[in-house]
């Protein structure tokens, strides 16, 4: 079972993992007013305990730029089955990574870092460590994936401090150390030259 939005949000905050401004909305009016309060563009996505991969059911809509678009988005998202509500989130630009945790039968808790986004399984650019990890381990993990180039100023992108990503890995390590879970996906984790955000999380218990 996936934890609901509020519980997940509480856990992320407890470990200092930053989430872009997000509101949980239940009707069209809430959707448009929350969106304009957060500031456009926003991303809107379904909140569901059942859908593990929201993009596969059309449950994530990006680049919403006006109140009207927010209302239309709400209508279409709320039609998806097994949806408990809609999340309106500040759209963050940057490079995408995935950070995950799972229980391995032999080693127990292990953490994964990979080049993220919806195509994570296609690129299969991932590396692992047995938990817990320290910052030095986290920095080594970053060096092991090809996606590290995205942080190094690839093709005119801004250079991004690798220690920002390492900090997230270390925070997830202490989260996994203390909280109950089976599997956790933080995907995407979005970094730009200014900030690093966990934009989406799934904690499976």
């Amino acid at each position: 079972m996936i934890l609901d939005y509020k519980e997940q949000d509480k856990i992320l905050k407890k470990y200092g993992l930053k989430v872009p401004d997000t509101c949980f909305v239940e009707n069209k009016t809430q959707a448009s007013s929350s969106a304009s309060k957060i500031g456009f563009p926003v991303v809107m996505k379904i909140s569901s305990k059942k859908h593990f991969h929201r993009t596969e059911v059309g449950g994530v809509l990006k680049n919403i730029k006006s109140k009207e678009e927010a209302q239309i988005a709400f209508t279409s998202l709320s039609k998806i089955e097994d949806t408990q509500g809609v999340l309106v989130q500040k759209q963050v630009e940057g490079v995408e990574f995935i950070v995950g945790v799972k229980k391995d039968p032999l080693f127990g808790g292990v953490i994964m870092l990979g080049t993220g986004g919806t195509m994570v399984e296609v690129f299969n650019d991932v590396t692992f460590r047995v938990l817990p990890i320290k910052k030095g381990d986290a920095l080594k993990m970053i060096e092991e994936i090809k996606g590290k180039k995205l942080l190094e100023g690839f093709r005119g992108l801004e250079k991004i401090d690798k220690s920002k990503l390492a900090d997230i890995l270390v925070k997830v390590s202490s989260l996994a150390d203390k909280e109950d879970y089976q599997e956790i996906d933080l995907n995407p984790v979005i970094l730009n030259d200014k900030k690093a955000f966990v934009c989406d999380v799934k904690i499976v218990v």
Binding site: F107, V120, V130, E183
Partner: peptide, 26 residues
Amino acid sequence: NSKKAVTSHTGSLAGEYKIFSAALRQ
């Protein structure tokens, strides 16, 4: 590979050998 039903991306990407290999590096 572990035959358990996989729900997350992490679960599907984390094969037993990959983790063993990472532990060797670690």
